[in-house]
Amino acid sequence: MGYLNNNTGYPKDLLASRAVIKKDNYALIPPDGLVKNVIPGFDNCDITILATPKLGASFVDYIVTMNQGGENRQGFGGEGIEIFVYVIEGDVKASADTQHFDLTCGGFLYCPPGVKLYLKNNTTTSKLFLYKRRYQPLAGHKPYVVSNNVNNLPKIDYEGMTDVAVQDFLPKELAFDMNFHILTFKPGASHGYIETHVQEHGAYLLSGEGMYVLDNDWIPVKKDDYIFMAAYALQACYAVGHESLSYIYSKDCHRDVEL
């Protein structure tokens, strides 16, 4: 049911999908049914474009599978565009203009506007979560390159709950108009309440299973699903099963609303 599952060609069952698309509200996009997109500059890579302004997002999210020899020597990003990449699986060499980083599983790199991202796969196959967004400048503040690995980031009790942990990727400084986080719910854990806020999210599930409420629709989710949550979309989840539910997600922050 899609190239990511190596299940193409003649159908083996009734055509069906768990996907739910509600533009300008929310979307659940499972790996089944994803197609390849051609993005100039990416060689020997399979790419799927996920959330975009066409869906209602102010950003663009991608899943990138870098095959052997996969690379981007052209550079990704540019003037006014900020970039974030997270390594889900594999080992890549990433560059932010003249700075170079070896990113293994859990590694990430943020490139501020005007700094291009370059990538080269160092192994058989690497899988990346890639993000771009137009930066909102703030007088007197300038973002900078940030790279680390999630295994080095502290796990903080989420709003005082010991069975839910959050990890923050970028500094909490006004120079940054967005951040990335990983939320991890132990089995049976949940948000403390249904959230309703102006921030929007693009979330990729790294592990586990759960029930996610999106605009009062309860939807089962699991590893490798992608969720888009628009501004003011009601949202919360429960973790179910025997494995912790964990997802990486973006959030716009540190800016007032423009009129």
Rank of each mutant, 00 (worst) to 15 (best):
Q199C: 03
E209H: 10
G188T: 10
G202F: 05
G192A: 02
T184E: 13
E195C: 03
Y212S: 08
G208W: 09
S190E: 06
G208E: 11
L206Q: 02
P187W: 11
L206E: 01
G210S: 03
G202N: 10
D215N: 15
Q199V: 00
L214S: 03
F185P: 01
T196I: 14
T196E: 15
A189C: 10
L214Y: 02
P187T: 11
L205H: 07
E195K: 07
T196H: 15
Q199G: 01
V213I: 14
V198E: 15
L214G: 00
K186H: 12
H191F: 14
H191P: 01
D215A: 13
H191I: 02
A203W: 03
E200V: 00
G208T: 07
T196W: 11
G192L: 04
S190V: 05
V198A: 15
T196C: 13
Y212M: 11
L214P: 04
G192M: 06
A203I: 03
D215P: 06
F185R: 02
L206P: 03
H191A: 08
Y204P: 00
F185D: 01
G202R: 08
K186S: 15
E209S: 14
E200Y: 04
Y204N: 04
L214K: 03
H191T: 07
V198Y: 15
E195P: 01
S207M: 08
T196N: 14
L214V: 00
G210D: 06
Q199E: 14
Y212C: 09
G188Q: 07
L205K: 03
A189H: 04
G202H: 09
V213D: 11
P187L: 13
Y193M: 08
G208Q: 12
G192T: 02
G210Q: 07
M211Y: 11
H201G: 06
E209Y: 09
S190N: 09
Y193E: 12
F185N: 04
T184S: 14
E195N: 07
S190A: 13
S207G: 08
T184F: 05
E209L: 11
G202V: 08
H197T: 05
T196Q: 14
M211E: 13
M211C: 02
Y212Q: 14
V213W: 07
A203L: 15
V213L: 08
G188W: 04
H191K: 08
E200D: 12
A189W: 05
H201Q: 14
Y204G: 00
G202C: 09
Y193V: 08
L205S: 01
Y204W: 13
A189T: 04
V198R: 15
S207T: 12
T184I: 09
M211G: 00
G208N: 08
A203P: 00
T184R: 08
H197A: 05
M211V: 13
K186E: 15
G188N: 09
G202K: 07
K186G: 09
S207C: 05
Y204T: 01
Q199T: 03
I194R: 04
G202P: 02
F185H: 12
Y204Q: 01
T196F: 13
E195F: 00
M211N: 12
S207R: 10
V198H: 15
P187Y: 11
S207I: 10
F185S: 02
G208C: 10
G210V: 06
E200W: 07
I194A: 09
Y212E: 13
Y204K: 01
H201A: 06
L214H: 00
H197Y: 07
P187I: 11
I194M: 14
F185Y: 15
K186Y: 11
P187M: 13
A189N: 07
A203G: 11
